[in-house]
């Protein structure tokens, strides 16, 4: 195995593209080192991207924020601007692992790990976040929602790395929230999760909604039909009940050691309902 601390994104992409063997990109390393320890992978090349200038930075851009791929989630959580604009995205990112893991793990890494249960991903998808990708053929932008391709898989091509994630600007009266279910209060992988992003009208009714569910399908699920139920309402009890049912309807989870199909499905609906209420309150809704 070789370890290379890359100096530029271009160098990183070139090294990864040229390596015929198994490669891993190292940002926070909180997934990669676990894979190494378990013997799950034996990479021939590890490219550290933390040493690339700019990748550890958060910059304001067009009313939104560009989050470097090597920004540790603890650092993200300390950024008042991002927290104010996208609290749901940040709370998802900040739920991953322990304080120790937070000091290292990144949103881009969580996305590239390809787990359907990644806590950072539903919030990003609900936010319509966009990943900037550097590859052998240059740079491209891609909606975060299009990156996951199944457990452990992404749509990134050989040699491509994510260099940053862009969180767009928000209008007034807009906010988001993320909730996950775990058996303990910390240190678990999400058994089901839900991110809800809302824009409200002046009267507190929902103008636009985007909902993403985690750990209930091979990739994060965008629950558009469910989101439409919220539009025009102030999240009254009946609306929330049918919203939860609609979320459950798009779940396609597995039975495993962490939860049953029935449990994941039902809990995803419950969490979506609760997250919608939090997002609504954060956006200045009446509740």
């Amino acid at each position: 195995m070789r370890y290379v601390a890359a100096k530029t994104a271009k160098e990183a992409a070139g090294l990864l593209a040229a390596e015929p063997g198994v490669t891993r990109v190292l940002a926070g390393g909180t997934d990669v080192l676990v894979q190494l320890k378990s013997g799950m992978v034996e990479p021939d090349l590890i490219v550290d991207i933390k040493t690339i200038p700019g990748l550890g930075e958060i910059t304001a851009e067009d009313g939104g924020f560009r989050i470097g791929a090597a920004v540790a989630n603890a650092v993200l959580g300390e950024h008042a601007g991002v927290v104010a604009l996208w609290p749901g995205v940040v709370e998802g990112a900040n739920l991953i692992g322990s304080t120790q893991v937070q000091g290292r793990c990144t949103m881009a890494g969580n996305l590239c790990n390809g787990s359907p249960a990644g806590d950072a991903v539903p919030g990003l998808v609900a936010a319509n976040a966009v990943a900037r990708i550097a590859g052998p053929e240059g740079t491209r932008d891609c909606p975060v929602a299009e990156i996951p391709a199944g457990p452990g898989k992404t749509t990134l091509k050989k040699g491509e790395i994510i260099t940053s994630i862009y969180l767009p600007a928000r209008p007034e009266r807009a906010s988001d929230a993320y909730l996950r279910f775990i058996p303990r209060t910390e240190m678990d992988i999400a058994v089901a999760s839900a991110a809800v992003s809302l824009e409200l009208n002046a009267d507190g009714t929902v103008k636009a909604a985007r909902v993403a569910l985690g750990a209930v399908a091979p990739t994060v699920v965008v629950a558009d039909a469910a989101a439409r139920i919220l539009v025009g309402t102030t999240l009254d009890g009946d609306t929330l009940a049918s919203f939860a049912k609609a979320c459950e309807a798009v779940c396609n989870p597995i039975d495993d050691k962490r939860g049953t199909i029935a449990f994941r499905t039902r809990t995803a609906g419950t969490l979506a309902k609760r997250a919608a209420l939090i997002a609504h309150a954060r956006a200045g809704g009446s509740k």
């Binding site: 080192l33 120790q100 290292r104």
Partner: peptide, 10 residues
């Protein structure tokens, strides 16, 4: 200055 698990650092 950041708290980390040294088992997750190369």
């Amino acid at each position: 200055g950041r708290l980390v698990c040294s088992c997750l650092v190369l």
